[in-house]
């Protein structure tokens, strides 16, 4: 038995011992919780096993982890497919289209029925994806890919323009705040105006420097040309540091949530 196998075995035995201990601990505790039965508590047990299975990855990629990885993958895929069938295929495609054709058959159609009947085109386009599996008719699937890609790019350009444009006007900052421009400052007087002015100056300078950093076709041979880009990178790194700290705290909260689940929901420690 090599070192890695021994470690994995020790890990599995350790987790198994923990579960046995947990089981006996709960056996003693369950009498204190009349609302909890083994039947209702089974979900917490499954959850705890899954948590330990995934956390075992901290040691290495092992069999225990692999089992839960594939369970998670199967569940995820199954959920996606079921969701797609129920929420998209049935709810947004089949039902309105079927209702439209039924209305045409019964003569009770409205102007909306024409649009809903057109959904059949979307179905044909969708089915054309499957020509990926035919060497002879592969070109048909490429038509669908082209249509999807074109529509995606068009929509994205529109969405980006609408998103970015207001950001330009939001960057117009008054860098010298006078008394008439800020009569209701929370921190009044010269100090308040000075603070807000510095804040606005920094804002505009940082935006301009970062924007300059992302110019690609501009030559930056001289030191003067390089300086704003270097400053922009410096500002970016400061913001990344802030993000790092902030996100790290979020991750710790997630860990605390899992520990809380194990202690409170699973082991029922008060």
């Amino acid at each position: 038995m090599n070192k890695k196998t021994a470690l994995q075995l020790a890990l599995i035995l350790g987790v198994a011992a923990l579960f046995v201990a947990g089981f006996f601990y709960q056996w003693l505790r369950v009498h204190d919780h009349p609302d909890v039965t083994w039947k209702t508590h089974i979900g917490a047990w499954v959850g705890a096993i899954c948590v330990f299975g995934i956390l075992s990855y901290l040691h290495s990629e092992n069999v225990f982890y692999r089992v839960f990885e594939h369970i998670l993958l199967g569940l995820g895929l199954g959920f996606t497919i079921a969701n797609m069938i129920r929420q998209v295929l049935i709810a947004k495609w089949w039902e309105p289209m079927y209702a439209a054709f039924k209305a045409f058959y019964r003569g009770t159609y409205t102007s909306q029925s024409y649009w809903d009947a057109c959904l059949i085109v979307a179905g044909i386009f969708g089915l054309m994806w499957y020509f990926q599996y035919s060497k002879k008719y592969l070109w048909l699937s490429r038509i669908t890919i082209g249509v999807f890609a074109g529509a995606g790019a068009g929509l994205a350009i529109k969405a980006e323009s609408i998103k970015v444009f207001p950001q330009i006007t939001s960057t117009f900052k008054n860098v010298i705040i006078g008394t008439s421009q800020a009569p209701n400052l929370p921190v009044g007087g010269l100090e308040g105006r000075l603070g807000l002015s510095i804040q606005n100056v920094l804002f505009v300078v940082i935006v301009c420097c970062v924007l300059y950093y992302f110019f690609f076709s501009l030559r930056r041979d001289s030191a003067i040309a390089k300086a704003p880009a270097n400053l922009g990178r410096f500002f970016l790194m400061i913001s990344f540091g802030a993000f790092f700290g902030n996100t790290f705290m979020t991750r710790v909260v997630i860990l605390i949530d899992r520990v809380h689940f194990l202690l409170h929901d699973w082991l029922m420690v008060q």
């Binding site: 995934i54 990855y57 839960f68 990885e69 998670l72 993958l73 569940l75 995820g76 895929l77 959920f79 996606t80």
Partner: peptide, 11 residues
């Protein structure tokens, strides 16, 4: 794999 982040990451 899947669009679920946890599934995608673990797989």
């Amino acid at each position: 794999f899947s669009a679920s982040q946890a599934v995608f990451a673990s797989s």
